[in-house]
Design a binder for these strands. Structure first.
Lengths: 205, 205
DNA sequence: CAGTCTACCAAGCGCTTGCTTGGTAAGCAA
DNA sequence: TTGCTTACCAAGCAAGCGCTTGGTAGACTG
C-alpha cells in the first residue's frame, strides 16, 4: 500500500471529489462513504483530513470563492470601458459556472443553504468582496447611462439568470458562452444583440 | 380525541406543512417525523395518507404546478397587448413566488432535483404547459419587435432571475412587486424604466 | 345494531448516517 | 536504531432515517 505523507494530495482530491459529487447529487444525498470511495480510502479515514462532513463543504466553497474573486478581479481590470468591463464580468461568471471551476461554483450558488449559519457567516466577507466588484462595475454603467436599473437589483437579477444557466446551458451546444454573454449584456444595457460581444470588449462606450 | 373521517383535511394540511418545511429546510433535511408533528399525528400515520415521503413532495409539486398554470393562463388572457401580456406574466410569476403560493412554487424552482427521475417525468408535461404560455408570449414579443433575444433563451434567463428573487426579495421592503416586474420587463424589452408598469398594462404596444 | 371503513397510535424493524476508537505500517529526524 | 508523526484500516457505536405492523376507537352503511 502506497503512503505519501508530507503531501496533502488526498485532502485536495477529497475536496475535488466532494465538489463533483455535491454538485451532481447534492450535499445531503452524498455520504461520507461515497466521498471516501471516490479517493480510495475508507469512510473513517476522511475524518483524518476534515473535522466533519460540513467542513468539507466549507473547504470546497472557500477555495472556490477565492478563485472566483481572483478571476473576477482580473476580468474587471482587463477592460478599459464601462461596457467592456460589464461584458468581461458576465463572460467570466459564465465561464466560472461552466468551465473547470463549475462544480465548486455551482455549489456556491445552489447549495449555500446546506451550510450552517455559522459557516455562512465565515464566508460572507468573501462573497461580499465578489459582489463588490460587480456592484462597482454596475454603478459605473449606471453613471454612464448604460444601465437603467439600480445596480443592486440588476446584480441580483443577473445572479439568478447566470446561476440558472447551469440547469440548461451546455457547452457543446450551438450557443457559445460568448454569444450568451452578449445576449445577457444586451438585456442588461438594453441595446445589444447577440454576437457583438467581441466588437464591444475593449472599445469605447 | 377528535376524528374527522370522510374529510381529507389532514392530507391537505400535510401537503401544506410539507411545502412550508421543504422550502425552509429542504426536502432532505425535513424528516417524516417533523411533518407528522406539524399536523399533530405520529410519524407512522403519515403513511396512511401517502405511500412514501417522496409522494408528499410529488403532491406538493403537482398541486402547485396546477395552480401555476391556471394563474399564468389567466394572466396571459387578461392582457390585450403583447407587451402588456409579458408584463402580466412577469407580475404573475413574481406573485406566485412571493404570494401565498410561494412555498410550493419555491420548491418547484429549487427542489426539483430532489424528485426521482421517474417522478420528474410525471410532472414534465405540466411544466411544459406552463413554459408554453411563456414561450408563446415571448415569441409574440419577438415578432412584434419588442424582444431582441431568442424566446427560449430569454425565458431561461428570466426563469433564473425571477426564481432567484426568493433569496433576496421581501414584500415588506421599499420595492414593490409591480415595480420589480417593471424593471424586469424593461430589461427584457430594453426600454422601460421602473414604475411604469401600470401605464403599459392594457395599452397599445 | 352488526359489519365495514377511516384515521390514527404504539412499537419497533432494518438500514444508513456521521463520526469515533484503537491500532499499525510507512516515512522522517536525530 | 529509536522515537515521533502521518495516513490510513478495521470495527463499530449511537442516533436518526423511512417505513411496517398490529391493533383500536369512532364514524358511516345497510
Amino acid at each position: 500500500m502506497t503512503r505519501t505523507p508530507r503531501q496533502d494530495d488526498r485532502r485536495d482530491r477529497l475536496i475535488e471529489a466532494a465538489a463533483r459529487l455535491f454538485r451532481k447529487q447534492g450535499y445531503e444525498r452524498t455520504s461520507v462513504r461515497q466521498l471516501a470511495e471516490a479517493v480510495g480510502i475508507l469512510s473513517g479515514s476522511v475524518f483524518h483530513h476534515f473535522d466533519s462532513k460540513e467542513d468539507i463543504l466549507l473547504a470546497v466553497m472557500s477555495t472556490t470563492i477565492t478563485t472566483m474573486i481572483e478571476r473576477l478581479r482580473e476580468a474587471a481590470g482587463s477592460a478599459s470601458t464601462t461596457r467592456g468591463r460589464l461584458l468581461a464580468l458576465i463572460q467570466t461568471e459564465l465561464d466560472l459556472l461552466h468551465g473547470n471551476t463549475r462544480d465548486g461554483v455551482s455549489i456556491i450558488f445552489f447549495q449555500w443553504n446546506s451550510l450552517s449559519n455559522a459557516n455562512q457567516k465565515e464566508l460572507l466577507a468573501m462573497r461580499e468582496e465578489y459582489e463588490r466588484i460587480w456592484l462597482d462595475a454596475l454603478q459605473a454603467a449606471r453613471d454612464g447611462g448604460a444601465l437603467n436599473a439600480e445596480p443592486f437589483i440588476a446584480r441580483r437579477l443577473l445572479t439568478g439568470a447566470n446561476g440558472w444557466t447551469i440547469y440548461w446551458y451546455h457547452r457543446d451546444g450551438a450557443l457559445s458562452l460568448d454569444e450568451l454573454a452578449g445576449t445577457i449584456l444586451g438585456m442588461l444595457t438594453g441595446s445589444l444583440s447577440r454576437g457583438q460581444a467581441e466588437v464591444i470588449r475593449g472599445s469605447e462606450v
